[in-house]
Design a binder for these strands. Sequence first.
DNA 1: ACCTGAACACCGTTCAAGT
DNA 2: ACCTGAACACCGTTCAAGT
Lengths: 182, 182
Amino acid sequence: MDAAIACFRRRGFHQSTMAEICAEASVSAGALYRYFSSKADIIGAIAEDKRGESDQAFLRAAEEQGFVPAMCLAARGFFDKFADGDGALIADIFSEAIRDDAVAAPLRAADDQSVKIFMRAVTAAQKRGEIETTLDPETVTDTLFAALEGIGLRRAFRRDINTEAAVSQFRALAERYLEPRK
Amino acid sequence: MDAAIACFRRRGFHQSTMAEICAEASVSAGALYRYFSSKADIIGAIAEDKRGESDQAFLRAAEEQGFVPAMCLAARGFFDKFADGDGALIADIFSEAIRDDAVAAPLRAADDQSVKIFMRAVTAAQKRGEIETTLDPETVTDTLFAALEGIGLRRAFRRDINTEAAVSQFRALAERYLEPRK
DNA sequence: ACCTGAACACCGTTCAAGT
DNA sequence: ACCTGAACACCGTTCAAGT
């Protein structure tokens, strides 16, 4: 899997060949197919593995510094992936997952996990008065994730992947979206 | 190009073969390569062609009904594409454009055009007091586009492409983001 | 000038043979 | 049980030959 990540980073999902991944991992094609049932399966396994890594760090930060700053910390980590050239890979993961439910299913399970963790933080922040209480925690979480992903993709598309600018853009949106009224 | 759109809709970009597109268009492979230099070039031409179609309709709506309702109208049209199964195709376009600058360049030109039109509407709405005046029109436009694309992609990924729900989700975000304070 | 389609180079996947 | 790698089926692209 590390070999596949290295290849995908270098040349992207569709441009990387199974032969390259085999060479990088020093195994034969047959051996690779013993562990992954297809090329799409590899990207699924990678995406599944990467999700939820930083959820615990986020939860701690949310309690110590408040929801928006913690969210911006997570955003910074996410935008860094785009700065590292993983933008096209993330778009590929979306594409494969949207097209192929076998790819999407495990990713959705991991995503649900993340959503649940962030949802809990939203609810806690609402109790502390940081977030408008009339907003539904699940919708808020999904919307913020969508904004995060959209901002990253658009910036990669526009060749303007400045992490700090991306975080500021996200913070301005999140602050105004979440701010309690009256 | 209509033939390619039909194929990509049916089976997606990477799953469609040049032979299929040739058959659908009733031309030979050689003839196709006379008009498009590669498969990536076809998706670039399609995306370029589709952009800016609804910009004029948006401008009129923005003046008649206000910015957010007009934006929601545009959002509805955009989310309908995802409901029509174009989600993976849109992700493919992002992927190819992020990876290949030859694909991205014409798309960026078309995107800039749309951004400019929406920017003008933002400025006009700020003068009418509909939108917080301290917000930068270009950032606002880019952020709303990012949210639009992110919400669409995430819903396609989650297999929850309900256009009305998506529009409501977007409207709630846009209203709170743009609303003038004090 | 423009088109055809066989040919080429290449890639994901399989499976008979090996250890 | 697990691995190897040649073989297979397939696809994007080209180009000599045709109109």
